[in-house]
């Protein structure tokens, strides 16, 4: 149990906690998007990881190819994310929304994942690209060394999550989007433009995932394989309990921490540890950590 001894050293433990929370934030950004889409249009998006990957490439391209300064890069990237969101919606979802085989919209997200992967490979090549951290260096707290990039990831993740909550819980527009997600038929009868609310949802989902990609780019390299992080987001969603945004966030943070702590025991089987934990959660609490807040009334 040498791994446990290492993990329990206060410094190591703190370090791994920060790393874990940072990674958990990235997963949470993806997981929130998954839930928002499931709620709004009932589609499980299997291209979520690819959207994160595309976000990393887009921001890399704008920074190192277009050579935009940071203050211009951010708004330009936001516009690109919104564009990707709208294209994604009108190509992968809109034509199929009335298909007689409802799963068609889910399968088309798998197709979209392949297309995005190929587009990225053709545009940027298959070699990993290096991206500098937003702020270089480390913070020293006592004998603790914390990378700025991780702290920034946590902060930006928290801000985005907060903004999404404000939108949906406090703003009129968010209320309208919730209504459209809950009952499209009634929403249309009241005059809610459901095309707009759906497009807005897609834009939010793509932006969340893409910002995740941007934040993670300096940690991993910018590479088409970033798409595989999607599995962590799925694990987060399932652990948190399907259908709850809060659950997805907590679940994702949990997955991030498990992954981080497990690195003192094994680095080779990190993926296996995450899914082992997932299986254990499913065995003992199959409904996830949080239940759904909407129930059906007979």
């Amino acid at each position: 149990m040498q791994g446990l001894n290492i993990l329990l050293q206060p410094n190591v433990f703190m370090q791994l906690t920060i790393n874990g929370v940072a990674m958990g934030m990235i997963y949470a950004l993806m997981a929130m998007g998954l839930i928002l889409l499931i709620r709004a249009i009932g589609v499980m998006n299997f291209a979520q990881g690819e959207l994160l990957m595309l976000g990393a490439f887009i921001t890399w391209g704008l920074t190192y190819q277009v050579k935009l300064p940071f203050v211009l890069m951010i708004p330009a990237a936001m516009l690109c994310f919104a564009f990707v969101g709208v294209v994604f919606m009108f190509v992968a979802y809109w034509p199929l929304r009335t298909a007689s085989y409802p799963t068609a919209t889910v399968i088309s997200t798998m197709g979209a994942a392949m297309v995005i992967r190929e587009i990225a490979t053709i545009t940027w090549g298959s070699l990993p690209l290096v991206s500098a951290p937003l702020v270089k260096g480390v913070v020293r707290v006592g004998s603790l060394r914390l990378q700025y990039q991780y702290l920034l990831t946590i902060a930006i993740g928290a801000v985005l999550i907060f903004l999404v909550f404000v939108l949906f819980e406090k703003l009129y527009a968010g209320r309208i989007m919730q209504a459209a997600a809950q009952d499209k038929y009634a929403a249309e009868l009241l005059g809610i433009p459901t095309v707009l609310t759906t497009a807005a949802t897609y834009i939010i989902v793509v932006t969340l995932a893409s910002v995740g990609g941007y934040m993670i780019a300096p940690v991993f390299l910018v590479n088409v394989t970033l798409g595989t992080l999607q599995l962590r987001a799925f694990a987060g969603v399932v652990t948190g309990g399907f259908g709850s945004v809060k659950g997805a966030i907590v679940g994702s943070l949990f997955i991030g921490l498990v992954e981080s702590y497990s690195s003192t025991f094994t680095t080779t089987y990190k993926d296996a540890v995450v899914f082992l934990v997932l299986i254990v959660v499913l065995l003992f609490r199959p409904q996830g950590l949080f239940g759904e807040r909407v129930a059906d009334k007979a």
Partner: peptide, 25 residues
């Protein structure tokens, strides 16, 4: 067809969309 996950008050608020518009207060 009321909105199941919105409160009574929120359901009523959503009813104003026809003249309220998506943005604004």
């Amino acid at each position: 067809h009321i909105f199941p996950g919105l409160s009574v008050e929120e359901n009523l608020e959503v009813g104003t969309i026809a003249w309220h518009g998506f943005f604004g207060r």
